[in-house]
Simulated assay, not measured.
Amino acid sequence: MPSFDDDHIGTRIREQRRLARLSQRELAARTPFSYSLLNQVECGARPATQNFVAAVATALKVDVTTLTGQPYVTELQRDRLAELVRPIREALDLYDLGTNPDLVARPTATLVAESDRLCAEVRATHLRNAARALPGVIAELTHAAWATPSTEAWKALASTYRTAHDIAVKLGYYDLSTVALDRMAWAAERASDPCLGAVRQYMRALVYFREGEYTIGQRLIAAGHNIVGQAQEGREGSAVAGQLHLGASVIAARANNVTGVVQHISEARKIAKRIGDASDVHWLSFGPVNVALHRMSAAVEMGQYDSALTQARRVRIPSALATSRRAHFLIDRARTEMETGHTEAALDHLMQARKAAPEQTRYHPGARETIRGLVHTARRTPDTLNYMAAWVGL
């Protein structure tokens, strides 16, 4: 069995708890979780679920990333990804500087197509490719939108800001993701596109979901519904509304609101049944399959692992589903398999996630914690598990 260093979520929780001058029992009393679980997580005997980490972070009044250790700088530097973040940060700062006299931008139509290509790269989990090209496209679109303002240019610029958010989240730079969402709102307002504005509220809600602030997340979802209600009736607005319901379902699950989960999944299913697959709308992957995946994710969030596993085994993932969404499902399923005692299956699904989306899987906190849990429970650690643990930096 590999000997992990002492830098993991449990040790960070212990450090922050001591800084707050709380005993384990006092901290546990401020969360929905037991003293026993907190004790096991702190000593490394149990992996920390994202729900658990969010609740503890809220109780300690610290950011979730303080406990997860994100971004995972050592691995990012080794993969030469950390060096791609600063140019993105700088490009986001160009938004109010107007035209750049030293820049010759490509035609707007070309840049619109390029912004769509970058979205596709992220969905395919080609994070390095997208991160490398993104700053230049943002700079060109910023110049073009100021030089010759048009709905198309502002929408494309908003799309690149959304891509910056997606990359930042997947690499663990949550401060940068917040800046990107602010820029997205700024561009969407100039594009006068309510659907884009509603998508931005959906993404903001997920930020608060990760931080354990479920009431704010629910309010943002409601605001998104109000915004998308201003759009013309049609497939685009329906798909965005459906995705808002899916976001609300996982927020309700994290808050252990079973009634809310059922209601939002039901509304999303009705929309998906009416419009079918709408994966092309704002790159949201909305459709019947995504509804099923969110229903399973909600069960995982509520700790209903037997139900989640039953659902997972029934899901048939189409080849056209975005790789990023497929990898997320595989990581969720691996966690479910581990929690129900199917450790070999859990490792197999983590390996599948790694094969499908190596960059996303390596920097996914859920994948790292599941690997840690598998190592702890294994009587004899298989070479494959040793390899996975070393690969994610444990």
Results as ranks from 00 to 15, higher is better:
Ala164Met: 12
Asp193Met: 06
Leu220Pro: 05
Gln201Asn: 13
Leu176Trp: 04
Gly172Lys: 03
Ala239Lys: 02
Thr178Cys: 13
Gly197Met: 11
Gln230Tyr: 07
Ala253Glu: 03
Leu157Ala: 08
Ser266Glu: 14
Val179Gly: 07
Arg183Lys: 02
Ser192Asp: 15
Arg190Pro: 02
Ala168Tyr: 07
Leu220Arg: 12
Ala252Leu: 06
Leu206Cys: 11
Glu213Gln: 15
Ser159Leu: 13
Ile251Asn: 09
Leu171His: 11
Arg219Leu: 08
Glu233Thr: 07
Asn256Lys: 09
Leu176Arg: 03
Asn226Glu: 14
Val250Gly: 08
Asp175Phe: 00
Val250Lys: 10
Ser192His: 14
Arg219Thr: 01
Ser238Val: 00
Val169Lys: 03
Cys195Gly: 11
Val240Met: 06
Ala255His: 12
Glu236Ile: 14
Glu189Asp: 15
Arg183Asn: 01
Arg190Lys: 13
Gly229Arg: 00
Ser159Gln: 15
Ala255Gln: 12
Thr215Gln: 10
Ala223Asp: 15
Arg210Asp: 10
Thr160Gly: 03
Ser159Met: 15
Ala158Ser: 14
Gly229Gln: 03
Glu233Phe: 10
Ala205Leu: 10
Ala188Gln: 05
Val258Met: 06
Lys155Asp: 12
Thr259Ala: 15
Ala231Phe: 14
Gly242Gln: 02
Tyr214His: 04
Ala180Thr: 02
Ala248Leu: 14
Cys195Lys: 05
Arg162Ala: 10
Ser249Ala: 15
